[in-house]
Write a protein that binds this DNA or RNA. Structure first.
Length: 576
DNA sequence: ATAGGGTTAG
């Protein structure tokens, strides 16, 4: 390879940096007989593009010390490194330096980079000022940077306003907006916007692997496998090649839609797996109660030379918890170097579900940081399972302080009092909720069928096939009574249950959803029901019974966990 | 020869 002049040297350096071989790039840089600003920029860019922002910032100072004057390109690279760091103090000092520098042309490139840096460092107003100051000199990239500035901070309305005002949307514009919805709990809007992208008249960019990754993620959050499969078919038809991240979101989608087998298949088919691939599947296995397989996967991950990170341990501890693997969980927790609040929450959950409520409580007392809501929430849930009213009060009051508006916490404590027959305390908690204006969330269940999402709430009579559903419900109840299923005295499939003493609640939403699914699904096929709250004991028993009577597998997702009901048995070991 | 925006995990 001829290395005659500074241009060939720099080109070689860039070549190494593009393949991620920064050591060779740096060796090349150090060996250069002469350097220009462009050589420095190439090295800076190499660091910045490969996630070594700190190295880039250090080299920037070396460059200034060596007497080189940064040009516009230098500033853009350094500013984007700072953007990735997200440090507002650094952003401000860099901006001060930039404004002191002489002879710099504040072109659109530079201003857009600045806009992005301010946005990523939490200075949204400063970002917007740059956006407005640019006036008609703004280009598509500037618009896109501003849209994602808003979606990152969860401001979907101003993001959508800019998106709608934009005249020349490119694929990144669409991706930013679709991802914005998907990441802010508005997955249904994400899917709708994707459909708009395909169907609206006029010139529209073709979806790429990033678009599809967001759509898969949205389908995962929604639990809509039919739409998900349609998106997968679209992917194949349009020959869109997925990268590792795209495959990761597919693993996520299948896991969340109850198709853990497909998630595993995608994982196996992937050529290049990263930590996220492993973490996603481990979490998926955890949600499905497959603790052993999750543990095996983490071993495999280590064998492949990929280090478990924060998310891996969250996933694996969840897997131990849901799979009833107490000893393994304890041992793993000890191996975590600096356990975070999340890890403590998982560990309290694991101990609590396994019946070691005292140990869980002691763990909270010895935590080196202030426990967050998840930690107390796990303890409170354990108190519900093991009827520890005394400890429940302590956990609940810790929780009310952190999350005064989370209705679930109040309901949980109220139900614990109800279990203990302490009705005056039940009333007290209910009054507390009213006084604080906390609304009880409605638990609804849904089933996807024929491209539509069918939703049910407790006592629902609004569904178009309502009479069929209630007819089936009554029929099932008769069959269950004949087969002696009510022998344990639990309130199986009662038409009306008294959920608390004030309200009479009709048939639970998941029973309605299961019956609807039985009516519409093809015989023999497994059915899926999604729920956003918790399957209550009543429904748990009922669904077990239905799975036995009907000989069908019923998969219920609730609270992001899956329960596979087969032949009257439920897959989860820890739940009740 | 060097520069800005979008994707994944409980």
């Amino acid at each position: 390879m001829p290395r005659r002049n500074v241009v060939t040297w720099t080109a070689t350096l860039t070549g190494y940096a593009r393949t991620g071989d920064l050591e060779s790039a740096r060796r090349c840089f150090d060996a250069m007989p002469h350097r220009t600003v462009v050589s420095w920029n190439a090295m800076l860019s190499g660091y910045s593009q490969n996630g070594f922002e700190d190295e880039a910032l250090r080299l920037f100072h070396d460059m200034v010390d060596a007497g080189f004057r940064p040009n516009e390109t230098t500033w853009v690279i350094v500013i984007s490194s700072c953007a990735a760091r997200g440090d507002p103090t650094l952003a401000d000092s860099l901006a001060t330096l930039l404004h002191r520098a002489r002879g710099i042309d504040f072109n659109c490139f530079l201003r857009t980079a600045l806009l992005d840096m301010y946005a990523k460092c939490g200075r949204l107003a400063a970002a917007r000022r740059i956006f407005d100051d640019l006036g008609p000199r703004k280009n598509t990239v500037t618009w896109n940077a501003m849209i994602s500035a808003y979606t990152r901070s969860g401001d979907l309305a101003p993001a959508r306003e800019l998106f709608d005002r934009m005249l020349n949307k490119d694929v990144v514009s669409w991706n930013s907006m679709i991802a914005g919805y998907a990441q802010n709990g508005q997955s249904a809007f994400a899917v709708r916007l994707f459909k708009d992208m395909l169907t609206l008249t006029g010139e529209h960019p073709k979806p790429d692997e990033f678009t599809m990754a967001s759509v898969f993620s949205a389908c995962g959050h929604l639990g809509t496998l039919e739409i998900g499969n349609w998106a997968v078919a679209f992917l194949g038809k349009n020959q869109i090649r997925l990268g590792t991240s795209g495959y990761n979101s597919l693993i996520f989608m299948y896991s969340k839609c109850g198709s853990i087998k497909d998630a595993q298949r995608i994982f196996q088919e992937m050529e290049r797996k990263d930590a996220v691939s492993y973490n996603t599947l481990i979490s998926g296995l955890a949600a499905h109660g497959r603790g052993r397989e999750a543990l095996e996967l983490m071993s495999k991950m280590k064998e492949e030379g990929i280090n478990p990170d924060h998310a891996t341990y969250v996933g694996i501890l969840t897997a131990c918890s849901h799979g009833g693997l107490l000893q393994e969980g304890r041992r793993l927790f000890e191996t975590i170097e600096a356990p975070s609040n999340d890890h403590y929450a998982c560990m309290v959950d694991l101990l609590g579900r396994a019946g070691e409520v005292e140990e869980a409580n002691r763990l909270i007392q010895t935590m080196p940081m202030k426990p967050h809501a998840g930690v107390y929430g796990s303890l409170l849930n354990a108190c519900r399972i093991y009827r520890r009213t005394d400890l429940a009060e302590m956990a609940a009051y810790g929780l009310f302080e952190i999350e005064p508006n989370n209705s679930g916490n109040y309901v949980l404590l109220s139900n614990i009092y109800a279990q203990a027959g302490r009705w005056e305390d039940v009333d007290r908690v209910r009054r507390m909720m009213r006084k604080r204006g906390v609304m009880k969330a409605t638990g609804w269940s849904w089933v996807e069928h024929g491209g539509e999402v069918h939703k049910f709430i407790a006592g629902d009579r609004s569904h178009e096939r309502c009479s069929e559903i209630y007819h089936l419900l009554a029929n099932l109840r008769r069959r269950m009574e004949r087969s002696g299923y009510v022998a344990d005295g639990s309130c199986v499939l009662r038409d009306v249950v008294e959920e608390d003493r004030e309200e009479m609640v009709g048939v639970h939403s998941e029973k309605l959803a299961v019956c609807f699914a039985l009516i519409v699904s093809e015989a023999g096929e497994a059915i899926r029901v999604m729920k956003n709250m918790r399957v209550c004991w009543d429904c748990h028993t009922a669904i077990r019974a239905i799975s036995k009577l009907e000989g069908r597998e019923i998969i219920v997702r609730d609270n992001n966990r899956f329960h596979h009901f087969v032949e009257g048995q439920c897959s989860c070991k820890d739940y009740w």
